[in-house]
Design a protein around this nucleic acid. Structure first.
Length: 478
RNA sequence: GGCGGCGUGGCCAAGUGGCUAAGGCGGAGGUCUGCAAAAUCUCUAUUCAUCGGUUCGAAUCCGAUCGCCGCCUCCA
């Protein structure tokens, strides 16, 4: 069975067949960089990171584009998010953008999220967006009104196909005041005339102004990925209106299908309600990183499915971290044994075991990136390995290496976990070995008090001591 | 008002018609150990919000009820 992806457009799982064989074009809505990223962003971008990693694991040549929104994203009040925040922090808008773009990438790096191949900024693509508006006007799908340009929803009968909504069912002005310059309240801005106090503005044929928020994703995805893309991802809350508007303006422009597979990830909840900037109930990634490792947060996110909401709490992350430790231990167990066994071919039985778990893992992932199941498979695999390590039935170096490579390929390359030791740990290794040698002599003399003191103090410093039958080994606890 | 989703053990979480309802955390006990830790083994849901229905067979499909959540032009 090949890869199946749940397509929001058809509301069912579909077999994944890229437009062009062997290649995948993928676009994910990136953050509006006006504040620090929070755990909600972590879930979203970790989820899509896994999509990219798995597609690459399957051998696809993936081009992954994720935008940085630095203009045009308005608040209910009509103010630009970036401008408002810049005013508050008393910095230039672009200074603010720079600061939070850095913070975003820093957080994503800590979570081991791969950088997109292209991270285009909306403000750096104003000419492309103006051209987009011009073409829509020429085709009659948009109209100018008082210096702004709106997409004419009435001209586009498919409007609502993604979100399953009908324009007439919506409560106009439910949240935002209706502008009388629009023909239909559902029409959305693709170019906005700037108020004088709005600093971020550009010349256009209609007014000095700025592009509508929905436009950037269409313009930039087309520029870098072509008129039709394989996968477009984003948060569920963006399905309507953002993605609906993207489809409308893009397909109106090209007359072609814009996106083959729409993927939407669910929200992070706190005590049953959505974690969001506006509710103020968010934990930033850097706050979380002061208590937990990036890997632990990542593991927590992957333990639920990307289309399910997940409730965030310290307890839940701690529990996830405990589970993760078992996988880390498994790799430690394997690597510490490699030096102790003889050279020789891997047994067929071991090769079969490795192949069996790899196959199961792939089956899990093929089912719409079911990471909770894939992790379950890793735990089963881990148990099987630990059992054999303990029984001492892994007799050759190559047997160990087959298991080690398979286990690490799946957990590191696909799930993005990392079992590499920190550089500082490697530097400390000779000293740790020295301490253990001293402790060994103390234990031989049965000086338990002193040997236990060494063990406890090392543990307090994050080094875990394990006394085996033959020898003592250690690992770093994160 | 419209559209969509969810409710599975003490906690988290897979499973969407058919072997004994994955897995993790937590808990109990055993093995190993000088004692620990780690690992490992065993146990920890006759039952899937409730009530009906369809079916040889339902956590899974249908209907109703209760509870919760998201979106309806701000948010990943």
């Amino acid at each position: 069975m090949g890869l199946n992806i749940y397509n929001s457009l058809s509301r069912q799982k579909e077999e994944f067949v890229p437009i062009q064989e062997g290649r995948v074009s993928m676009y994910v809505c990136g953050p509006t960089v006006y504040d620090y990223p929070h755990i909600g962003h972590a879930k979203s971008y970790v989820s899509f990171d896994i999509v990219v990693r798995y597609l690459r694991y399957l051998g696809y040549n993936v081009r992954y584009v994720q935008n940085i929104t630095d203009v045009g994203h308005l608040l209910d009040s009509g103010e630009d998010r970036i401008l408002k925040r810049a005013e508050r922090e008393k910095v230039e808008p672009m200074e603010l953008v720079e600061k939070y773009t850095h913070a975003y990438f820093q957080a994503m790096d800590a979570l081991n999220v791969m950088r997109p191949d292209i991270s285009p900024h909306a403000a750096a693509h104003i000419p492309e967006q103006i051209e987009f508006v011009e073409k829509l006007l020429a085709k009659g799908y948009a109209y100018e009104s008082k210096g702004s340009v709106y997409f004419d929803v009435d001209k586009w009968p498919n409007y609502g196909k993604l979100s399953g909504r009908k324009v007439e069912d919506q409560q106009a002005g439910a949240r935002v005041d209706v502008l009388d310059e629009k023909k239909n309240p559902a029409d959305f801005a693709i170019w906005k005339k700037a108020e004088p106090e709005h600093i971020m503005q550009w010349n256009s044929p209609w007014s000095r102004g700025y592009p509508g928020w929905h436009l950037e994703c269409s313009a930039m995805s087309m520029k870098y990925l072509g008129e039709s893309l394989d996968i477009h991802g984003g948060g569920m809350e963006n399905q309507f209106p953002h993605h609906e508007c993207e489809i409308a303006q893009s397909e109106a422009l090209t007359g072609k299908s814009f996106v083959k597979y729409w993927m939407h990830n669910n929200m992070v909840m706190v005590d049953g309600v959505k974690m969001s900037k506006s509710l103020g109930n968010f934990t930033t990634v850097s706050d979380a990183l002061s208590k937990f490792s990036g890997q632990q947060i990542r593991f927590f996110v992957m333990q639920s499915h990307y289309r399910s909401p997940v409730d965030f709490s310290d307890m839940a992350i701690t529990a996830a971290g405990q589970g993760l430790e078992r996988l880390v231990q498994t790799v430690n167990n394997l690597t510490s044994m490699i030096g102790q066994v003889v050279d020789g071919d891997a047994s067929d039985e071991i090769k079969e075991i490795a192949a069996k778990y790899r196959k199961q893992f792939e089956a899990d992932m093929n089912d719409d990136f079911n990471t909770p199941n894939a992790i379950g498979t890793l735990f089963d695999f881990s148990k099987e390995i630990n059992k054999r390590v303990q029984e001492g039935t892994l007799e050759t170096k190559q047997s160990l290496m087959v298991l080690n490579e398979t286990f690490r390929d799946l957990s590191e390359n696909v799930l993005g976990l990392s079992f590499e030791k920190e550089e500082s740990d490697v530097e400390a290794a000779p000293f740790i070995d020295l301490l253990l040698e001293i402790r060994r002599e103390l234990r031989e003399k049965k000086e338990w008090q002193l040997s236990d003191l060494i063990r406890d103090e090392m543990q307090n410093r994050g080094v875990l001591i394990k006394d085996g039958k033959e020898k003592t080994s250690w690992s770093v606890k994160k």
